[in-house]
Design a protein around this nucleic acid. Structure first.
Lengths: 132, 132
DNA sequence: ATGGGTGCAAATTGTTTGCATTTTA
DNA sequence: TAAAATGCAAACAATTTGCACCCAT
């Protein structure tokens, strides 16, 4: 009986959990397509709509951050408290979080405008790709 | 005769010229949709396909730069020699070119990777929107 | 039996492509 | 008359939505 209840509870949350597990375990932002692909491995037959719905809700609840970078589809990562930017490998298209930031951005700001936030992206080739 | 020839020559380049004229005259990057809209005013009935084709060719020839920013559709501007970034107003979604840049980006770079280029984007509210 | 979660398929949006026609040289 | 440009409509990719259904409470 208790095992049956356990199974039932697991079933109820299986799909949405799979999505969040994928996002959590990766440690770096993933595109929706990658998340769908991996969630489908954990949970075969999961619909893309479910993945998108789950991501949207998780972003709204603050559990997940939507990472938007130039020229790339939106990526998703588990929300963290720290402020960070990304390195984008132009070869393999993987992202790497960067530590630290530059703080003198305001000197670039147009007169009369107010800065709310900013984005810094470094493009190049990652160590993995350079080794080959 | 000569007037007829003149007319013919003008006709031949009307559509593609309209696209480049729109991009040139604006002085800041425009989205494809905005370009289509304005080109259609200059040159009613112009097809979206022609606009996209023209933009693609102009980018390939180096005449126009494709500007990709986080969360925005690609924008297009007349290519310039100088390196610059953009301010994005989150209210009206207009872009403003920024002067200057930050030069110590490499300190953020992951070990073993090579930087090819970078992007800095400042989001906020522009002076126009703040005044109201 | 009520309501949230789900998959499917249709709708949407933005862009690209194929193709027949027009225009140009 | 051969090559380039054009418009239309179909194709496309990524995401969203409508809807009927399943399943837990």
């Amino acid at each position: 009986m208790s095992t049956e209840l356990f199974y039932v509870v697991k079933y109820r949350t299986r799909q949405r959990d799979a999505v969040l597990r994928v996002v959590t375990e990766e440690g770096k932002p993933l595109s929706a397509q990658k998340i769908i692909e991996r969630a489908d491995q954990l949970c075969p037959g999961i619909g893309a709509a479910t993945v998108f719905r789950t991501l949207k809700q998780a972003v709204e609840s603050g559990e997940v951050s939507k990472v938007e970078l130039p020229g790339l589809a939106p990526h998703y990562e588990i929300a963290t408290a720290d402020h960070h930017h990304f390195f984008v490998c132009e070869n393999c298209h993987e992202l790497q979080p960067l530590e630290g930031c530059l703080d003198d951005l305001s000197k670039l700001l147009p007169i009369g405008s107010r800065m709310k936030h900013h984005e810094i992206v470094i493009f190049g080739e990652c160590s993995n790709c350079l080794e080959r």
